[in-house]
């Protein structure tokens, strides 16, 4: 009997293949990219995006959506570039408080039965306003240790790749292997059953949101480590990028079916797509549109594959 990839494997295989194909295309267009420095440059900015994607994934696991990801990461970046650099204790307190707010939001959304879209959209303004208050114009500087971390040069493999692999493994462990991850995904798949088995759905959702906050905070910090300075609008596009990354990586909006490794691959692919488009001399005008188009195409392909699988199952 030949080996046919199961549905789960397929879901991760597709983004991995697309990344490989895209990478090959980039190398063919720009052979100089095929070096240590080249790879690092290509995937540098993917690290904070990958973290934000994992954060969004936590929230999508419990069937919600976070439309404030972009402004929140920008806010964190502003805090990092200012407080964390000058008054580390205050900076850490602020960031911890922000994670606490995320957990609180998760609780409120569950208890009051609110649509997460509207609540997070409202909160996105709050984060945006706070960011503007902290840094009305671009400025600040990254803490030394962050700079050192993001510009480090591990042997053989560039920092960007090391970091991405690390993020993927940690997220995979938390979400797919650990007991908490199982219950979290269970809440996304069949909340009533999880409740009946005696678990506290409230705690699980608060935990999911808190994890999301944590990863988003890391994203903002890493971003500042790379760009050294920050401004209030630095990460606004992370909202769509994070959602697209989860979907590209084989995740679903509802049902609790997500793949952390796929999500990181998705983030890498989206980052690469940007470079790919510029190597193709496509004007930056179209880069935004390309991200939207990629998301639509991936969803369309996924639908076709699903229909095909259903047709086969019926036979």
């Amino acid at each position: 009997m030949s080996w046919r990839p199961g549905p789960e494997t397929l879901r991760v295989l597709i983004p991995a293949l697309s990344l490989a194909v895209l990478l090959a295309a980039v190398f063919w267009l720009q052979p100089r990219a095929m070096s240590y420095t080249g790879l690092n440059l290509l995937f540098n900015l993917a690290v904070p995006i990958a973290l934000a994607t994992i954060a969004q994934m936590m929230i999508m696991t419990v069937n919600d959506l976070d439309l404030s990801m972009g402004t929140f990461v920008s806010f964190v970046a502003c805090v990092t570039a200012t407080f964390l650099q000058s008054d580390p204790v205050i900076g850490i307190l602020i960031l911890a408080g922000a994670i606490g707010v995320y957990a609180l939001l998760g609780i409120v959304i569950y208890v009051r039965n609110l649509p997460s879209i509207v609540v997070t959209l409202g909160m996105s303004f709050v984060w945006g306003g706070l960011a503007v208050l902290i840094l009305p114009s671009p400025g600040g500087s990254a803490p030394e240790w962050l700079r050192w971390l993001m510009t480090s040069r591990p042997p053989f493999v560039p920092m960007a790749i090391v970091a991405s692999v690390l993020i993927a493994l940690v997220a995979h462990f938390i979400v797919m292997q650990s007991a908490f991850g199982v219950v979290m995904r269970g809440v996304g798949g069949n909340q009533r059953s999880v409740e009946r088995a005696g678990w506290s759905v409230l705690r699980v959702r608060a935990g999911a949101y808190a994890l999301a906050g944590l990863f988003a905070v890391l994203a903002g910090m890493m971003l500042v480590g790379l760009t050294t300075a920050a401004d209030a609008n630095i990460a606004l596009r992370y909202t769509l990028l994070s959602i697209a990354g989860v979907i590209l990586g084989g995740g679903d909006f509802v049902g609790g079916r997500v793949s952390p490794i796929g999500a990181v691959i998705g983030a890498l692919t989206l980052t690469l797509a940007g470079s790919f488009l510029s190597f193709l001399r496509i004007s930056p005008d179209w880069q935004i549109g390309a991200q939207g188009a990629i998301l639509i195409i991936v969803l369309a392909v996924r639908l076709l594959v699903q229909r095909q699988q259903q047709r086969e199952a019926r036979q």
Binding site: L121, G122, F125, V126, G128, G129, V132, L133, P136
Partner: peptide, 13 residues
């Protein structure tokens, strides 16, 4: 502008 954004967001939320 910062306060404006925060107020708007808080009101909606």
């Amino acid at each position: 502008a910062g306060f404006r954004l925060i107020m708007t967001g808080l009101i909606i939320t």
